[in-house]
């Protein structure tokens, strides 16, 4: 499993525990007629619940992106105490981009919504533009591909999956 998704799941569990604790404490305080404390706990529980829902949604999209992965760019390497190394990856996929703990999606609403607009690849970076008609967002990634064949293969994958022809520029 992708490390980012793992971290997201960890956060989700924390939010779930906080929500539960908040609800239980609110009920407890309400039972003992501590109205102010009960309201504070209920508000905290509600906030934790909102965060939980947001996190669940994030995990859903992250899982979709990992499942339709086209390219995984190693962003960093995490080494645990026992020396085990795990790569933190940025994932470029048919339906979006997983960048650290951020998820950007495209092409999930058919003819409507956010769509992948432009992909350009040069010797070191990938430039991805996506968004609705009037609101474009661009992301630059270091791709780490050393040979032209890998870049061409990635460009072909992008075309096959999303219909966008990736432009290879200034390749040395």
């Amino acid at each position: 499993m992708n490390l980012v998704v793992k971290a997201m799941k960890k956060n989700r569990n924390i939010y779930a525990a906080l929500s539960l604790a908040g609800v239980l404490l609110a009920a407890l305080f309400f039972f003992f007629r501590q109205d102010t404390a009960a309201i504070v706990c209920a508000v905290l529980a509600a906030a934790a619940l909102v965060l939980l829902l947001r996190q669940v949604r994030l995990i859903y999209w992250a899982a979709l992106i990992c499942d339709s992965k086209l390219l995984a760019v190693p962003a960093s390497i995490v080494t645990s105490k026992d020396g085990e190394q795990q790569r933190l990856e940025t994932v470029v996929a048919t339906f979006g981009l997983l960048l650290e703990n951020k998820v950007y999606t495209w092409g999930c609403d058919g003819v409507n919504g956010v769509r992948l607009r432009k992909v350009e690849v040069d010797g070191t970076r990938i430039y991805i533009s996506f968004g609705a008609e009037d609101e474009l967002l661009s992301v630059e990634l270091l791709h780490g591909m050393a040979d032209f064949a890998s870049v061409a293969e990635f460009a072909e994958k992008i075309r096959y999956e999303t219909g966008v022809q990736a432009k290879i520029i200034d390749w040395q």
Partner: peptide
């Protein structure tokens, strides 16, 4: 070799198109 969830997204896009 993809998940059913991903197939559903492709299907949704096809329906929309």
């Amino acid at each position: 070799s993809i998940s059913e969830g991903t197939v559903k997204f492709h299907l949704g896009n096809i329906y929309s198109k």
